[in-house]
Simulated assay, not measured.
Amino acid sequence: MAKSPTLGQPDIPGASVARLATYLHVLRSISESGDLVVSSNQLAAAAGVNPAILRKDLSHVGSSGVRGVGYDVSRLIARIALTLGVEHNHNVVLAGAGHLGRALVSRAGFDRRGIKIVALVDADPELVGTKVAGNESEMVVGDLAEIAQICVEHGVKIAVLATADADAQVTCDAFVAAGVQQILNFTAVTPQVPEHVFVRPVDLALELQVMAFNAARRHSAENGSGAESEVAQPNELQRGRAQGPRTQSNKRSVGV
């Protein structure tokens, strides 16, 4: 079984962790609309999952709901947030001040999910010192060499890698040296990291391939070919790749 990188909850499958984050986002929207209770069917429909899967996922956070009533929204939010470790903000450093990095910095909603981007750095001297419009205020692009200082100053344990591919490994090395153990990787490079460091790839091409596969299956089903209507999930495909043969090494390659 795949292990979750979430602190304190090592036995929750990675796919469940991803869905719990979705439930949390949906629940917060439900709470803001003024609803105090939500049924498993309502929450499952809003999150796009089967109610049985929802109930199994929520069993990991110790919540079973009340038959005929549903789940207390505020209590379920608190339980999931505690399980995911997002009841308090986690400071994040984003490496890469290109189009993607700037878009991520300016995106709203991270704070509502327990994430605060505290710094933006880049290896390009022409970008260092420039200002980027953030969600709340402007951010000044720092130098890649400042990663260690920034991580220590802000207690950073999570980083986002959105650099040019040529800078990916050296940037990843700098984060690891600074004590960062969780890295979200938007590059096409598979960085080499120590065994204790978790790298989660974000592969747009994979996401589009999954969408194309699901569209083809649905088209076949609608035209009576007898194909199953189940859809594939990107994290399932990534997990399948990760379970392939691996060579023994003191470093781990986690990639797309």
Rank of each mutant, 00 (worst) to 15 (best):
G65A: 01
V128K: 02
L58M: 04
Q209P: 04
V61K: 06
S229P: 00
N185G: 01
G98Y: 07
I147M: 07
E230S: 13
I30G: 11
R246H: 10
L20A: 09
L76Q: 03
N250Y: 06
V256W: 00
S249H: 04
R252E: 11
V37D: 08
A123V: 11
A97Y: 13
E32D: 13
T163N: 09
K116I: 13
G142D: 09
I115Q: 09
A164I: 03
H219K: 06
G114L: 09
P10G: 02
A119D: 08
L7R: 01
G98Q: 10
G96I: 04
F213S: 14
G134H: 11
H88M: 13
C151T: 03
D167A: 15
Q182W: 08
G134D: 11
V26Q: 06
I150C: 09
Q149V: 08
L7H: 10
A97V: 12
D11H: 09
V156S: 04
G68M: 07
S74H: 15
A221Q: 06
E153T: 09
L27K: 03
D203I: 06
F110T: 03
F110S: 05
I12R: 05
A168L: 00
A108W: 14
V189Q: 09
V193E: 07
V105D: 10
H90R: 14
L7C: 06
I77P: 11
D111N: 15
D143K: 12
T187I: 07
Q181T: 15
E222G: 05
Y23P: 11
L20R: 06
A46N: 07
D173T: 02
D173V: 03
T163K: 08
E230K: 12
I12Y: 08
D143T: 09
Q243W: 08
V231N: 12
E126R: 02
V197W: 06
A46R: 02
F186E: 01
A133M: 05
T247Y: 04
T130V: 10
I147Q: 10
R241A: 14
A178G: 02
D35S: 00
L206Q: 02
F110D: 10
A162F: 02
V49E: 11
R107V: 13
Q192W: 08
V202P: 09
V92T: 10
A108S: 15
P51M: 10
P125H: 06
E136W: 12
Q42R: 12
Q149C: 12
D72M: 02
V49M: 00
S225R: 13
S16P: 07
